[in-house]
Amino acid sequence: MENQEQVEPVTDLDNFFHLSFDAISRDQLKQIAMWSKICSITGLIGYLIQLYEWLFGHSRLGSSFGGGVLGILLNVSVIGGGGVVNYFLYRFAVAVSRGVQNTDALHVNSGFNSLRLYFRTAGILAIGIICLILLGIIGFLITG
């Protein structure tokens, strides 16, 4: 009896939405974690190559945004932003994978926080890109 596993009882907040990660959703989460890990690692490697090319290479890839202050700003935004987004995705993948392996809902639930940060950062970057495109169109229309 002393060796029996002791766990905290389930409270109302633990099952607030009356949704559980059953066998089907656990399998889905396992595959989500695997593919999001692939996405994040390949994305991070890609951005590291771009950073290397921009800093030390022949600038064939790095010069895609042109030189000058604007070019540096765009390079830093794209490479930095992309790196941060992929880092959040990697954190999500690791947390969910650990949670599913150990049957620990706490890790899965904290993984959703990283997913939220991933989508939010990507969304803010998308807003920035839309603003830049609109500015470019307005500038083109004004200058003719």
Binding site: P9, F16, L19, D22, D104, R116, F119
Partner: peptide, 27 residues
């Protein structure tokens, strides 16, 4: 306040908790 897993097998279930659900909704 602790309960045995053998007494309540549903304790092994993984549930979407309050914080996880709200962060998922924002995501």
């Amino acid at each position: 306040g602790n309960t045995n897993v053998q007494d309540n097998p549903e304790l092994l279930e993984m549930n979407l908790d309050y914080d996880g659900g709200h962060t998922l909704m924002e995501a």
